[in-house]
Computed example of a mutant assay.
Amino acid sequence: MTKTSPPIPFGSERTDLDKSPLEIPGLLSRPIWRELRTFLAVAKSPSFAQAAELLGTSAPTVSRDVKRLQDQIGSQLVISRFSGVTLTETGRKLAMQIADLDFQLFVYSNELKEEADAVTGRVVVSATSGLAVAIVAPAVSRLSDNYPRLNLDIREQVSLVSFEKNQADLMISLSPTSRADIECMQAGTLHLIPVASSDYLRKYGIPLRNTGSRHAFLQCKYYDSDREIWNGWRELINGGQHAHYCENSLAYFALVKNGAGIGLLGSYVLADPELVPLDLNVHVALPIYLISYANRRQSKAVGAVYDWLIDVFGTNSSFGAGLTFPSGRSEQEESLREMLKTISSPSASQPD
C-alpha cells in the first residue's frame, strides 16, 4: 500500500496565498512618472533647452519638472550652471535606472504593436561604424523588400563589450557573451590585414617586413592593446614610422584611403579597387557574434532581422572562416606580389 505524503502547508497549490501584484490595492510609486521622463531627457542633454526640444515642450517646464522631482525624492539630482547642466552622483544612478526602464517599456510597446501585424515595428541594431556603413546599411533594401512595415534603427555602439549599455534588440559584436538570458551566435569572421591605397604605394613603394621602417603606419584605438593577438601588428607599428592615431573607425578608413599610411582593415574593404592588401605576415581573425536577449528572439520582427543579419554575413565571402579577397581578387592571391609591383615604379620603391 502506497503511503501518501501529507500536503505541504504552504505549497504551490495554495493559490490563495500567492496573489498577483495587480491584486494589491493602491499604488506604491509617487506621482512622478512624467517628471522621471523629463529627468531622463535632461540626463541625455547638455541643457534644459535641448531637453525641452527633445520632449517638445519649453525649458521652463523642464526646469519645473526637475525641481518637482527633486522635492519629491528629497535629493539634488541636477546642478544647473550657465554652461549647462550636470548630474550629481545620485542623479547619475537614478538616470541609469530610468534608462533601463525606458528601454524595457520600448521593448514591451514593440511587442504589443507586433500583435496587430506579424512583422512590423522598430528593431534596434547596434553595430560598429565600419560594419554599419559597409555591410549592414547596403543590405537594408533587401530587408525592406521582404518586410515593408519593419523599421530598422541602426545605432552606433556605446560599448563594444556590454550588450545592455547599447540598449538594442540585436548587437553585432566582436566579444562573446555567456549568460543564460542572452543568445550569442557566431555570424562570421572579421579578417584584419594590412592595407594601403594605390596612391600611397606609388609614392612610397612596396612595404616589406625588412623595409617597414621606411613606411608610415596608422594606429587605431581598437588595436592599441597588449593582448597577444595584436603582437604582429604592434611589431609593425613599433618598427615603422608611427604616423597617426585614430579612434573613429570611419576616419581611420579615410586616412588609409587617402594615402596617409598603412592601416589594419577588414578584408571586406578590398571591394574598393583603390585599396591594396599587403603581404606583411599579419592577419588577425576575429569572430563576429550576433547577440540578443533570448526572449526577444521570439518576437517575429526581431527574429526577421536576426535571420537577415545571419544571411548578410553568411553569404559574404569576406566573412568566411578563411581569408579571401572580394571582387574577384581571390584569383590574384598567388600573384599578389606581382600585382603590387605593377602599381609601384622602381624608383618609388627606394624613397630617399
Rank of each mutant, 00 (worst) to 15 (best):
L174W: 07
L270W: 10
G303S: 12
S173H: 07
D16W: 13
S5C: 06
G314D: 02
P6R: 08
Y306N: 04
Q50V: 06
D311E: 11
R155G: 05
P148M: 08
H242A: 08
H244C: 05
A118G: 01
L323T: 05
D71M: 11
D181E: 07
D102N: 12
S335R: 11
P176A: 01
Q241P: 08
D181R: 04
G328E: 01
D18L: 15
S80V: 06
S75P: 02
K341S: 11
G84Q: 04
S109N: 11
Q219I: 09
S83A: 06
F163T: 00
L336N: 11
P9K: 08
N248M: 12
I343H: 02
R37L: 05
R209W: 02
A294Y: 13
T120C: 06
S58K: 09
R202T: 13
G240A: 00
A116F: 15
R337C: 03
I343V: 05
G26W: 08
T120E: 02
L40W: 13
A187R: 10
L94F: 01
A294N: 12
I8G: 05
G240I: 02
L27Y: 10
V302Y: 01
S299R: 10
T38H: 09
Y222I: 14
A260L: 08
Y147Q: 07
I182W: 04
K257P: 04
T61S: 15
D226R: 09
S318K: 07
Q298N: 09
Y293S: 05
G259P: 08
A271D: 11
A321Y: 14
L69N: 10
S47W: 03
G84E: 05
Q50L: 10
V85E: 00
C184R: 14
L275P: 09
L236T: 00
I237K: 02
S5P: 12
S29E: 07
L201W: 03
L54I: 14
F103C: 00
S75N: 06
K67I: 15
V107R: 06
H191S: 11
V78F: 04
G56A: 05
S347M: 12
S20F: 10
T61P: 12
Q72T: 14
P148V: 09
F82G: 08
M171W: 10
G261L: 02
A59T: 07
L290P: 00
Y147S: 01
T315L: 10
P277I: 04
L54N: 12
V195N: 04
D117F: 11
S330A: 13
T315W: 09
G261Q: 05
E13S: 14
L17T: 08
Y245P: 06
F39D: 02
D199K: 13
V305D: 09
H244K: 14
G320K: 08
V161I: 14
L208W: 04
I172K: 04
N295C: 06
N166H: 05
E164A: 00
S292A: 13
T15F: 03
R297E: 05
G328W: 03
V78Y: 02
P326F: 01
A43F: 06
S213R: 11
I98S: 07
F10R: 13
